[in-house]
Amino acid sequence: MAHRLGIVGASGYGGAELLRLAATHPAFEVAVVAAHSQAGTPIVDLFPNLAGTRVFDAIEVGALAECDVVVLATPHDVALELGAELFDAGVRVVDLSAAFRLSVDGFATWYGGTHDRPDLATGDAAADPAAVYGLPELGHREAVRGATLVANPGCYPTATLLGLAPLAGLLQPGTIVVDAKSGTSGAGRAAKDTLHFSHVHGDLSAYGAPGHRHTGEIERWLPGDLGAVSFTPHLVPMARGLLATCYATLADGVDAAAVQDALTTAYADEPFVHVLAPGRFPHTKALAGSNGCQLSAVVDGRTGRVTVTSAIDNLGKGAAGQALQNANLMLGIEETAGLTTVGVYP
Rank of each mutant, 00 (worst) to 15 (best):
G318R: 01
Q294T: 15
A288P: 03
R189C: 07
N328T: 11
P237C: 00
P282A: 03
G163I: 08
E137D: 13
I218T: 04
P278E: 06
T309V: 09
M1F: 11
V306G: 09
N152Q: 08
A99C: 02
A206G: 13
N152F: 01
G163M: 10
Q294F: 14
M238N: 14
G123E: 02
A266T: 01
D119I: 04
L339C: 07
G224M: 07
P42G: 04
G208E: 06
Y247L: 15
I218Q: 01
Y247V: 14
N328E: 11
T158H: 11
S310Q: 06
G183L: 03
L263I: 07
V275N: 03
L222C: 00
V32S: 06
H214A: 10
H283K: 15
S310A: 11
A121P: 02
A159E: 02
D119S: 13
A262D: 10
A126D: 13
R92L: 05
L120T: 04
A297M: 02
H115L: 10
P237T: 05
G208M: 05
A84M: 00
L96W: 03
I333E: 13
K317H: 15
G169R: 09
E334N: 10
V69T: 01
L96E: 04
E137H: 09
L21H: 05
T184C: 12
V299C: 09
V8T: 03
A127P: 00
P271T: 04
E270K: 08
G12L: 09
S97I: 01
T175E: 06
P136I: 01
L250A: 12
E142Y: 07
D261N: 14
S205T: 14
N49P: 09
F87Y: 12
E335A: 13
A257T: 14
A22M: 01
W221R: 00
V273P: 03
V70I: 02
T160M: 07
V259T: 11
D225N: 08
T114N: 14
G40F: 02
H36V: 11
G169F: 10
T307E: 15
L135R: 03
M330Q: 11
H76R: 07
K181A: 15
S185Y: 13
D119C: 09
H274Y: 10
P210E: 04
F87K: 00
